[in-house]
Simulated scan of single mutants.
Amino acid sequence: MTGRVEVGGMDENDASPVLPPDAALAMLMRKELLRLAAAEEELAVTEAARTPYWEACPESVTAHRVAARVLREDADRFLVSNALLRTAS
């Protein structure tokens, strides 16, 4: 084993990018954070859709949107750290 990890949903025979373990972990973490952010956005949309337009938006909708924004910001930090890892290797 070379200590490198393939990232993506591709077969071993496909020409997938091979990244150092730290970079691969950073990309997997970023992918998961973005998945969680999308789930938070979906919860916000679902809860907002159940609220009649004449009523105030529930605080939980705002909380889900804030959580999604924070998760995306954290995901962007992994993107920056991955870029730093690539330039260092």
Rank of each mutant, 00 (worst) to 15 (best):
E6F: 11
H64E: 08
T87Q: 14
E6R: 15
R30A: 10
A63W: 00
A24G: 03
T87M: 15
R86V: 03
R65L: 14
P52S: 09
Y53K: 09
L33N: 10
V61F: 05
A39T: 10
E73F: 09
E32F: 07
T87E: 14
R86K: 12
N82R: 14
L85E: 12
A83P: 03
E6A: 12
T62F: 02
E73S: 15
R65I: 04
L28D: 12
A15D: 14
T51C: 14
A39F: 06
T51L: 05
C57I: 07
A44H: 05
L43G: 02
T62Y: 01
V45Y: 05
E55T: 02
S60L: 08
R69Q: 15
S16R: 12
A39M: 05
V70Y: 10
A23D: 13
P20C: 14
A24P: 06
G8I: 00
V66C: 04
M27P: 01
E40I: 00
A44W: 02
V18H: 11
T62H: 11
A75V: 01
V7G: 09
H64F: 07
E41H: 06
E73H: 04
G3T: 03
D14I: 04
A44S: 05
E12T: 07
A39G: 07
R72S: 07
D74I: 00
V5Y: 04
G3R: 11
S60W: 03
R69L: 11
D14N: 13
V45K: 10
E12D: 12
Y53N: 03
E59P: 08
T62P: 01
A56L: 11
T62W: 01
A83T: 09
L84D: 11
V5F: 07
Y53E: 14
E12F: 09
A23G: 05
P21I: 07
A44Q: 04
A39C: 02
L28G: 15
A24L: 05
M1W: 08
F78L: 13
A37Q: 08
P58K: 03
E6K: 15
L85Q: 11
A26I: 07
P17V: 01
L36F: 09
E73T: 12
A83H: 15
L19Q: 10
A37R: 05
R72T: 07
Y53T: 08
A38S: 15
